[in-house]
Design a protein around this nucleic acid. Structure first.
Length: 856
RNA sequence: GCAGGUGUGGCGGAACGGUAGACGCGGCGGAUUCAAAAUCCGCUUCCCGAAAGGGAGUGUGGGUUCGAUUCCCACCACCUGUACCA
């Protein structure tokens, strides 16, 4: 009898699928279409076990849908622009393009042996000029449709390297290479007008029935709709052309608790004052130190500077409050100015205590309300509180009632306006980098800012132009330094002009690739027929880290593409269903070095015994379980080693088996070995069944009944992303088949069904066994088994009996036995009799088919 | 800081408000073997007990319920995002 040898059978079936073009996406017949897409990878160099898990999940769905009669589109590509390629060029020389395409080749070579049912003919990388040229066409159409504009934005500036830094290049407020203190600086940048769609993007979330609730909630909070009051405070003395300061507040009801008026360091008035007030300029410079992330801004120590200006309270002109500049006020939100009410906002309170500003309560708790000391009183807006001195005459009311009343009252008096605002900011797409999609804009001395003509696209990066003089030896944007690339003719007047040297944010690349996959070689961004047929993505799969930005930008882009005629109206929400999968983790094995620092050891150097790990020389290592895989911790598992050792099917089986797909899974050597043992067992059981000639007997029905239960359970698992549950059932069913004394015909049927149910996860093994047992054609194309409902019915049921909620016994009764009889039998049970000791039960709860609980 | 999530045996994890620990790993015992590997069979939450049985138990502390891993409140720890990492 032959043994299970994945190194022989896997290449064999891969070439069989290739030959039959099994996974080529086609629009044939009247079959329904199904588009399954996994978030495409960044070409970092090698595939990661996390990729294996991600693509295996997609492959299970793709193969399952193929066998349930769908035309399936399951493509693969690469998100290939971005900083790591430039970093590699800076570090080791060479060119980002060479590095990127070499990495792509390697990764494709590594993915093919995994046997994914992908339509490789559609592959592209976002750095292909054929792709980014179409992206430039989209940009021009978006510009024409009013979805793109220019304004100033704040960036991380490294004053030593004289360059813009990405957030991840700012470490503790310092530039990662220069170590210099990073400053926040303004630059003119291109923006997508996503804020104009904020309301629509928010409302449409409700229609995303097959998205995880957590992702929808995160997007809702990110868009952040609020209703508040916008109104002005008059300056007691006009200055620098300002006679009042506009503020926006979501808590206008606390107006009588105003302590000071706060300006953002980037507010126009702040900038005006800075010019002739050196002390203020110095304070603001201090406030502008550090990175631009929201986290850095929020966690920074609260700093303030008294401008000396005063404003009049809108309800009482004799009440003047000071104007401060404060570093925690964001220019991007509202009007860049606030009034502070320290009694009901912890941040304001901390600031007022630090700078000795007044704290005035406006409301207190209904019971035991005490004045605010060092903890702001911030009840839920739905909670009733007692107002101390409310101008609109409120006494006891909730915060929400007070806000509404105040807005109405202020509006009626003409003192302000109720407005809706969103937290969502416009999407800045300009990057001062080389390895990205050039922004197709030309600056002409006479014509100004001119969009490039479509017939001149793609505006290719200098390397793609055949001009390779790219210099990464100094920081900054090589396009900006390139001797000739930026020189061009003005598309409008033909005079010599200069190109935009900024490239696009890589989020742009990934915001429409799903649409491009429907017609990857089209001469326009999309082909209407193909887009109409294949859109939307029926199932999108990727990491939770993309829950907000990538998915929100894609939703925006789909709408923009509808507006510009590149997608049908029905594609406004491009992803019908979303699934967010967890990471693959691995233990870290560490010892302590002589210098006291941790030393990390590769898994292959560690011998595991009884839950402890030892090095070759007998040194025990500390095991840190379930850590994110990271090269620096030496706990990365290379899928290629696993394939060499056990085969692709084992790797696929294991990444699905041990954890629910949305959760992290820990890779363990013993788990991988167990998966391999199980696949060998299936092969053995199949070979035995193939060789057996046992006659049919009275065990046949029991086996076939179990088979139909397995069909039902496994199918349900696959349909609901419960792959680990499907696999648990498949383990159990394998056990049943192996132990069954049924005849050979029934056994062969059971084994064929077993491997059919396994085929989305372990497709090579399934094909091999299928052909061994005389299955017709490829199992990949065979129709999915259907459970016979008659075989699922059980006629009796075992009910646990609880006494006071604790399980004390069980009874087996006919499935539809009536409640009174179940109760009678339960009470007759010896454990119940013992517990009752002659008394009558206080209560008996009978849940039909479930449980009996006797309360004594 | 803010937003979202997660927390169950020695380990990964299972459980429409209804038998907590399915399935797998590890461990223990047995079969097979000259022996081993491989394979097969059984046991395995913890504590007390020879057993029958009893007690405890799903991050912590409360609450709702006949019954809570599941629902509610407060807290702790970890993970993800935080708009220029992708």
């Amino acid at each position: 009898m032959s043994r299970y040898d994945p190194s022989v059978i896997e290449p064999k079936w891969q070439s069989a699928w290739d030959k039959a073009q099994t996974f080529r996406a086609t629009r044939d017949g009247d079959k329904p279409k199904y588009y399954v897409l996994e978030m495409f990878p960044y070409p970092s160099g090698r595939i990661h076990i996390g990729h294996v898990r991600n693509y295996t999940m997609g492959d299970v769905i793709a193969r399952y849908k193929l066998s349930t009669g769908h035309n399936v589109l399951h493509p693969m590509g690469f998100d290939a622009f971005g900083m790591p390629a430039e970093n590699a060029a800076m570090k080791s020389g060479g060119h980002p393009k060479t590095w990127t395409y070499e990495n792509i080749d390697t990764m494709v070579e590594q993915m093919k042996p995994l046997g994914f049912g992908l339509d490789w003919s559609r592959m592209f990388a976002t750095c292909d000029p054929e792709y980014y040229g179409q992206q430039q066409a989209l940009f021009l159409d978006f510009l024409e449709a009013g979805l793109v504009y220019r304004k100033n934005a704040i960036v991380n500036w490294d004053p030593v390297d004289m360059t813009v830094l990405a957030n991840e290049q700012v470490i503790d407020g310092k530039g990662w290479r220069s170590g210099a203190d990073v400053e926040r600086r303004e630059l003119t940048q291109w923006f997508f007008k996503i804020s104009g769609m904020a309301g629509e993007l928010l409302d449409a979330i409700d229609s995303l029935d097959e998205w995880p609730a957590k992702v929808k909630l995160m997007q809702q909070n990110w868009i952040g709709k609020s209703r508040g009051l916008q109104f002005a405070w008059d300056l007691t003395e006009p200055t620098h052309g300002h006679d009042k300061i506009e503020v926006y507040t979501t808590r206008p009801d606390t107006l009588m608790g105003a302590s000071f008026l706060g300006l953002s360091p980037d507010h126009p008035l702040t900038k005006a004052l800075e010019a002739d007030n050196p002390d203020l300029a110095a304070a603001v410079a201090e406030m502008r130190r550090g990175g631009t992330t929201e986290e850095a801004l929020e966690k920074a120590e609260k700093l303030g500077f008294d401008t000396g200006l005063k404003v009049q309270h809108p309800l009482d002109p004799s009440w003047e409050i000071p104007v401060w500049v404060a570093n925690f006020i964001l220019m991007d939100y509202g009007t860049g100015a606030i009034f502070a009410c320290p009694a009901h906002d912890q941040r304001d309170l901390d600031f007022c205590r630090k700078y000795d500003l007044p704290v005035i309560d406006t409301f207190r708790a209904l019971e035991n309300g005490t004045p605010v000391e060092n903890e702001a009183f911030v009840p839920l807006k739905t909670e009733k509180v007692r107002w101390l001195n409310h101008f609109a005459g409120l006494d006891v009311a909730t915060g929400q009632e007070a806000v509404d009343t105040t807005i109405d009252w202020m509006q009626a008096k003409g003192l302000g306006e109720g407005v809706e605002k969103f937290r969502l900011r416009d999407w800045g797409l300009s990057r001062q980098r080389y390895w990205g999609c050039p922004i197709p804009i030309v600056y002409c001395d006479t014509c100004g800012v001119v969009p490039e003509k479509k017939e001149n696209l793609p505006i290719a990066l200098p390397f793609d132009n055949g001009n390779e003089e790219i210099d990464f030896s100094v920081p900054g944007n090589p396009l900006d330094r390139h001797p000739t690339w930026r020189d061009c003719a003005c598309p409008k007047c033909g005079a010599p002009a200069k190109r935009e040297t900024d490239t696009m944010d890589t989020f742009v690349d990934s915001s429409w690739y799903y649409a491009r996959f429907t017609a990857p070689r089209a001469e326009t961004p999309t082909d209407p027929d193909e887009a109409n047929y294949w859109m939307n993505v029926d199932q999108y799969i990727g990491g939770i880290e993309h829950a907000i930005l990538h998915l929100l930008y894609s939703r925006f882009f789909a709408r923009g593409m509808i507006k510009t005629g590149h997608l049908p109206e029905t594609a406004a929400e491009p992803f019908n269903a979303l699934f967010t999968q967890g990471m693959v983790t691995h233990a870290i094995f560490q010892t302590t070095g002589k210098d006291g620092r941790p030393v990390y050891h590769y898994p292959e150097d560690v011998d595991l015994r009884d839950g402890k790990g030892f090095l070759n020389d007998g040194t025990e290592v500390t095991i840190v379980p379930s850590a994110k895989m990271s090269k620096s911790k030496n706990n990365v598992v290379d899928p290629m080693h696993i394939i060499a050792q056990y085969g692709a099917d084992t790797a696929r089986w294991f990444v699905l088996s041990d954890s629910p797909p949305e959760r992290d899974v820990e890779w363990t050597a013993s788990g991988a070995e167990a998966a391999h043992k199980h696949l060998s067992r299936v092969y053995r059981v199949a070979a035995e069944a193939a060789a057996s000639d046992a006659p049919g007997n009275d065990h046949d029905t029991a086996l076939l009944k179990e088979m139909h239960k397995a069909i039902f359970d496994v199918t349900q698992g696959v349909e609901s992303f419960g792959f680990n549950a499907s696999i648990a059932k498949l383990y159990a069913f394998t056990n049943t088949v192996a132990k069954s004394k049924a005849g050979s015909a029934a056994k062969r049927e059971a084994v064929k069904t077993l491997v059919h149910l396994m085929s989305p996860m372990t497709p090579h093994l399934a094909e091999e066994v299928w052909s061994m047992l005389g299955g017709e054609g490829l199992i990949a194309n065979a129709p999915w088994p259907v459970a016979d409902e008659k075989m699922l019915v059980e006629d009796s049921v075992t009910l646990p009996i609880q006494i006071n909620g604790k399980r004390r016994g069980e009874i087996t009764v006919a499935k539809d036995l009536d409640k009174a009889e179940v109760e009678r039998q339960a009470l007759a049970h010896e454990a119940v009799q013992r517990a009752l000791d002659g008394a009558t039960p206080k209560k008996v709860i009978v849940v039909p088919g479930r449980i009996v609980n006797v309360v004594v």
